[in-house]
Design a protein around this nucleic acid. Sequence first.
DNA 1: AAAAATATGTAGATTGGTCTACAGAGGGAG
DNA 2: CTCCCTCTGTAGACCAATCTACATATTTTT
Lengths: 184, 184
Amino acid sequence: MGQKGEETRTRLLDAASRLLESGGYFGAGLNQVIAESGAPRGSLYFHFPGGKDQLVSESVRRAGRDISALITGLEATSTADLLSQLLAVLGDRLERSAWHQGCPVATVALELSATNDAVQQVCSEAYQSWEAALRDQLLADGHPDAEDLATTVLALIEGGLLLARAHRSRQPLIRVSRTIKAIL
Amino acid sequence: MGQKGEETRTRLLDAASRLLESGGYFGAGLNQVIAESGAPRGSLYFHFPGGKDQLVSESVRRAGRDISALITGLEATSTADLLSQLLAVLGDRLERSAWHQGCPVATVALELSATNDAVQQVCSEAYQSWEAALRDQLLADGHPDAEDLATTVLALIEGGLLLARAHRSRQPLIRVSRTIKAIL
DNA sequence: AAAAATATGTAGATTGGTCTACAGAGGGAG
DNA sequence: CTCCCTCTGTAGACCAATCTACATATTTTT
C-alpha cells in the first residue's frame, strides 16, 4: 500500500473514531465519515471492504491500543497517583472537546454488545487490555486483590466519564478522584 | 383522556424504553417502536406531538423514577448491603434479558449529552435523583463524605453495568460488589 | 502496462415526520 | 328517544431525506 493510500485510510479511521465516540455506532453515518475525512466514498470500501462493521472494529481496536498505551505510559508513584493523573487527562480531553470525547469504546459497546458479535468482541478485548494494564500497576503496588481491584477501578473510570458527560461537568471525576485518594 | 388512550400511550412508552435501553437513541427507530407497541403511527404523534425527542424524554424520565424507587425501596442493613442487593437485582435483569437491559439512561446519555440539550437535561436529572437517594442512605449510615461517596458509588454501578454488558458476563458486577464489601 | 487508489453515481431500504380519513364515545337540543 | 355536533384517538398512506452498500470509470503510483 502506497503512502497516500495509508494516509487516506488513517484519515477515515480518525474521522470514524471522532464520530463514533461522540454519537455512537448508529449516530455516526458513513456519509458523515466521508465528509469529515475528505476521502471519497469509493476509498472507504476499498480500504474497508467489510463495510461499516470493519471500519468500526478497527477504529475501536486502535482506540483500545491508544488508551492502553496511555495507562502504561504514565509515570506514577502509586496507584492512587496513577488514577489521579488518568482522570485528569481524560477530564481535560472531555472538557476541551465540549463533552464529545469521553470513552472511545463505551457508547459503541452499549449500543451493540447484545446484538453485534464481532464488534462486541472488539470492545470486550479493549476493556480487557486496560484492565490488565491497571492490574499490573496494582500488583507492582503490592495490592493483594489486584484482580478484583482492577475491575473496580476500571468501572470507576468508566462510570465517572459517563456521569461527567451526562452532567456536562468535571465534578463527578473530581469527586471520584477524591474518594479514591481517601480510600486507597 | 380515556382509558384506551392511556393504554396506547403506555404501550408506546414501554416499547420505546425497551428499545432505547437496548440500542440507544439512534438505534431505536420509530418504525420499530410502532411495530413492537402495536400502535399505529398516527397515535404516536397524537400522544407525543413533540416527536421522537418527547417520546425519548418521557421514557427516560419514567425509567429514572423507577430506578429511584428501586433504590429507596430496598431494605438494607448498611450501604454495603444496599449496593450488594442493588447490583444483584440489576445483574439479574441484565442477564435475563440476554445483555439487552442494563442502565436505561446510559446509552442515550452517551449518545446525546453533547448535542441534544433537552434529552441531556432529562438524563442528568435522572442521575441526580439516584445520587440523592444513595447519598441519603450513606448519610443515614453515618458516612462523613456522603456527597463524594454517593457520586463514586453511582459511578461504580454504572461502570460495572457497562463492563458487564461489554463482556456479556456478570463477573464485573461480582468483582465490584466484592471490592465494595472489602472497602466500605 | 499493471496494480493501487480515487472519484462518482446510484440502488434499495429505512429514517423521522406530516397528512387526511374515519371510528366511536359523550353531551346537548329538539 | 333521537338527531347532531364535537372531541378523542386510531389507522395508514405518503414524503423528503438519509442510510449502507455496491458498480463503474478514471486517475495515480510503481
